[in-house]
Amino acid sequence: MKFNLNLPKGPIERIQGKCISLIGDDIDTDRIIPARFLKCVDFNSLGDSVFADDRNNSNIVHPFDLEKNQEASILIVNSNFGCGSSREHAPQALMRWGIRAIIGESFAEIFYSNCIAIGIPCFTLTKDSVKHIQDKSQNYDLFFEINIQKALAKNSEFTLSLNLKESSRQMFLNGEWDATTTLLNNIELIKEKIDQLPYVNF
């Protein structure tokens, strides 16, 4: 369990940190957090269990166990990351391990919206660019400063242009990724809408 865990809060403009690469397509949420760890009524202890089975079964040291990755906060993944179960426990486990942003070829849809809802930006890049930074981060310590407004990942060596959905970008910048208040601002419209729905009165 990591100490001094500052979870995302309010507007998020930039994320600085070290990269950790996890190679493989179609990494599903059962692998990110196996179902037995879902037996809980809060998310607090999930950070320790992230990739529990992959880490135990791996013939080589799993990236999440490598000493050099322990302070990493930017996860670099391949395609269809987070497919399968809608369990928010998966991004929660990653976040509680220390991940604050994810860069990948593509993300499964529910996983993506869960990440946004807890303040973890997910950026996409081409397959070649992902491979390039995965190779680099495996060979030496790769740091990025990500600017959300510009969707740029920078370090002293190079600058990468990332893709970020416009709606997600705005939610991070104004803090509305924590959406409840925004949604409740329209409560009168919501009530009106419910009253108009034919099936409510069937």
Partner: peptide, 8 residues
């Protein structure tokens, strides 16, 4: 949906 969306 995920849990934060269940909350919403």
């Amino acid at each position: 949906i995920g849990t934060s969306q269940v909350r919403d």
